[in-house]
């Protein structure tokens, strides 16, 4: 499962990144808080199958498919 597949209003945890992910993408995501083991909340999918909106720590980002498909995630259960 990748970040792109996350459902709205669910928590996921970042397991790692695809090997062929461009270094520049990885660095940027790292700086924004999308790091290994980070917990991410998928807020919504933008209309017209647009970018996905995620909350990481205290900020919210929209990511397009080109980037999101490189991030491997797993669902997290929250009470």
């Amino acid at each position: 499962m990748t970040l792109w597949d996350a459902n709205p209003r669910t928590y996921i945890r970042i397991k790692g990144f695809m090997e062929d992910m461009p270094e520049a993408y990885r660095l940027r995501l790292h700086d924004l808080g999308f790091r290994q083991n980070a917990e991410v909340y998928c807020l919504r999918h933008a209309p017209f199958s647009g970018p996905r909106v995620f909350q990481v720590e205290d900020a919210v980002f929209a990511l397009e498919k080109t980037v999101a498909v490189f991030v491997k995630v797993e669902p997290v259960e929250h009470e």
Binding site: A24, Y25, R28, L29, L32, P51, V53, A59, V60, F61, A62, L63, E64, T66, V67
Partner: peptide, 8 residues
Amino acid sequence: NTPFIVEL
């Protein structure tokens, strides 16, 4: 080409 990542 820089990916589209936007902070809201």
